[in-house]
């Protein structure tokens, strides 16, 4: 009994989740809800119709699959893939599709959609192509149903009643799976960019440098603070050179944040030296009324590192015989 209940749930769910709901299908939804509560026999007929449908699709497999692959090429979808690849994918999508229709469960299809997306996204396949091919398959199968049952209009209607909600739901599942995979990749890349954007580098024992390049927005400022304070902790740093040569300008909230970061670093027992302030940034800092007694600034990165070395008690002395002779 369980599979039928599962199927019924899907039919109901699709009335809310799938966007292609027509009037005819809404009628079916209402009907199927009645079935759940009142008439058991009609439920069985929906199931048997789907069985019949699946049998038909299995029987016509070779023909329909070819027809579908042809339409895909014709519509100029999946241009990044070769004909053979399209045919191979079409075959497995088709089989997964029929299986989802048969079992009424979408987990396998979902997993397949994710796996497919993983493979084809790097090759530049677009969302509209994936949605396009699934909708094409839906149409190809619907056409074949028309062709088979065109003599018995009532039967055709009943079969479509069973087919359409399931097919729409499948299309939704595959499209959503593709988009989710894309979003996952985008999230991962954003994460990677964010991490790369604030490197914390140790130049000497207890001396860190943080070169910052590009505009600092509030989110990046927060992350910068976190990285800097964590870096002080993990590297046991005493001096940090924060080089903002590559930052064209900052607004006052970010400037304030920067000053606060410098003070927080002091509470951890470290000194922050800010280097490479552009005239615009200097202006912003003066406008917010920064306390220069709290902020160490040096003109450029070299000067900053030299100052840091002095604070740490290093003394860099040139060797008598330089290793590198000028030509």
């Amino acid at each position: 009994m369980t599979p039928r209940v599962v199927l019924l749930n899907h039919v109901q769910a699709s009335s809310t989740s799938v966007e292609h709901v027509t009037h005819g299908q809404e009628g079916l939804m209402n009907g199927s809800q009645e079935m759940a509560t009142v008439t058991q026999p009609r439920l069985e007929t929906t199931a048997s119709r789907l069985r019949e449908l699946v049998a038909h699709l299995r029987h016509q497999r070779a023909h329909l699959r070819e027809e579908w692959a042809r339409l895909i090429t014709e519509a100029k979808l999946l241009t990044a893939m070769t004909k053979e690849e399209i045919f191979a994918e079409a075959t497995s999508v088709y089989d997964n599709y029929v299986e989802a229709l048969e079992t009424g469960t979408y987990e396998a299809l979902q997993a397949y959609a994710r796996n497919l997306s993983e493979r084809i996204i790097p090759r530049g396949v677009e969302t509209h192509e994936v949605v396009g091919i699934v909708l094409l398959l839906r149409d190809v199968l619907a056409r074949s149903l028309f062709a088979t049952y065109h003599e018995d209009f009532n039967k055709l209607n009943r079969i479509l009643d069973a087919y359409e909600p399931a097919a729409n739901r499948i299309a939704g599942t595959v499209a959503v799976g593709f988009v989710q995979e894309r979003e996952r990749i985008i999230r991962e890349q954003q994460e990677a960019i964010r991490e790369l954007s604030t490197p914390v580098l140790q130049v000497r024992e207890r001396l860190l440098i943080l070169p910052i390049i590009g505009v600092i927005d509030p989110q990046r400022a927060r992350q910068l603070t976190e990285q800097l304070l964590r870096g002080i902790r993990t590297n046991r740093a005493k001096v940090v050179v924060l080089d903002i040569t590559g930052v064209p300008y900052i607004d006052s909230p970010v400037a304030n944040h920067l000053v606060q970061t410098v003070e927080a670093a002091r509470l951890l027992g470290a000194i922050v030296i800010v280097t490479g302030l552009s005239p615009e940034i200097a202006q912003t800092l003066v406008n917010i009324g920064v306390d220069l007694g709290k902020m160490n600034t040096v003109g450029d990165l070299q000067g900053g590192i030299e100052e840091a070395e002095r604070l740490l008690g290093y003394k860099v002395v040139p060797m008598q015989e330089p290793v590198l002779h000028s030509a």
């Binding site: 603070t225 304070l229 606060q260 027992g269």
Partner: peptide
């Protein structure tokens, strides 16, 4: 003083003016 604590202190304007702070016991 923990990094997160330090930053929230500064945000509240609590900067321990004129007091020496160090990373940990060893540094102190």
């Amino acid at each position: 003083i923990q990094p997160e604590v330090a930053f929230s202190m500064v945000k509240l304007g609590l900067t321990l003016e004129g007091v020496t702070t160090s990373l940990d016991l060893e540094e102190g």
